[in-house]
């Protein structure tokens, strides 16, 4: 059970890594810096949020730490252009 769970998480994680990026939304961000403080590789996520720019840093692991820790729900994953479905 435990192994299945971790495998499922792992595959979900890989999918995000392959298809997504982190997008900040200025209207929710209060620049508290919890995102930057918790980024395991030190990306200044807060600065991206101030500028209203996606986290397009090639070092970003899309680990989700900033997304889950943000107390204002100001960050979310978005599919990258390559994986967006075409409009009907």
């Amino acid at each position: 059970m435990g192994i299945e769970l971790s495998l499922s998480n792992e595959s979900k994680h890989r999918e995000v890594m392959a298809t997504g990026r982190v997008i900040p939304v200025q209207s929710r961000c209060v620049q508290c810096g919890i995102c930057s403080f918790n980024c395991p590789i030190g990306i200044d996520v807060r600065r991206h949020a101030w500028m209203g720019e996606p986290i397009d840093d090639s070092h970003c692991l899309t680990c989700g730490e900033c997304v889950w820790r943000c107390p204002r729900g100001a960050l979310r994953f978005e599919r990258t252009e390559l994986f967006k479905r075409e409009e009907a």
Binding site: V30, Q31, C32, G33, I34, F37, R46, W50, P71
Partner: peptide, 21 residues
């Protein structure tokens, strides 16, 4: 600095220096 962030400084989620933007 982040005034809303003061609450997270009190709860210990961020250190003081993190408040400076």
């Amino acid at each position: 600095y982040s005034r809303p962030g003061l609450a997270y400084y009190l709860t210990g989620e961020i250190p003081e220096k993190q408040l400076t933007i």
